[in-house]
Design a protein around this nucleic acid. Structure first.
Length: 202
DNA sequence: AATCTGATATGCT
DNA sequence: GCATATCAGATTT
């Protein structure tokens, strides 16, 4: 199978919190010289720009790193955290710095390649975290600023999750009230989510 | 639960 | 230039 085109632009133009849920079950595909690897998105977190203390773009902080968040929905926002690359989907209209962090995927195609890149054959440990999935899929800063609608990194239609849960986000201590906002979404009971915390299913 | 790792950008001196 | 902060992960206690 070959992916020449991702989801249409209007898919990404949903309100950010809604898009974060819509992305669950979609297939994230990365094509490289080594081969194609892909996985179903099973966990996301929304970051709501100026009003969100936890967001890089809080208070419209516009820097070289956050610049792409002010662009159009459907662009790729990658950044590095320590030794790991994390990947986000830019959301919201132009000049609204909102984004959705992809926190975990369920391995689908190219599992051999992912195992090689991660140095493990434990499926549950391949892509169950934002830094892990980028390494497994081969996502790098090279992808920064590109679109999820075109190769080599695309999001295509996948399957509809059976059930979706929501709850507080992860890793954002000391950011005041924002840390309790239920802006993390995951596929209920999916074993590939990064951390199992309590949430409410819908 | 604590600690190490150490990319990138920002802010201060 | 140096100090600091960041949407982690792996390893060790």
């Amino acid at each position: 199978m070959n992916y020449t085109q991702g989801l249409p632009a209007d898919f990404f133009q949903q309100p950010t919190l809604q898009l974060a849920q819509s992305l669950l079950g979609c297939l994230l595909v990365k094509e490289t010289a080594e081969g194609t690897a892909s996985g179903f998105i099973v966990e996301t977190e929304a970051y709501m720009g100026p009003e969100d203390r936890a967001a890089h773009s809080y208070n419209n902080r516009r820097t070289k790193r956050t610049e792409v968040m002010f662009g159009e929905a459907g662009l790729i926002y990658t950044y590095k955290m320590h030794t790991h690359t994390l990947v986000n989907v830019v959301s919201g209209p132009l000049e609204k710095p909102e984004a959705i962090l992809i926190r975990a995927v369920e391995p689908y195609m190219g599992i051999d390649l992912m195992q090689k890149r991660r140095g493990t054959d434990n499926l549950k440990n391949l892509t169950s975290g934002p830094g892990k999935l980028t390494k497994a899929l081969g996502i790098t800063m090279e992808d920064y600023g590109h679109s999820f609608s075109a190769p080599p990194l695309v999001i295509v239609q996948g399957k509809i999750p059976d059930e979706v849960s929501s709850g507080a986000r992860i890793g954002i201590d000391n950011t005041g009230e924002a840390k309790e906002y239920p802006w993390r979404f995951w596929v209920t009971n999916n074993p590939f989510v990064s951390r199992h915390r309590k949430g409410t299913s819908k």
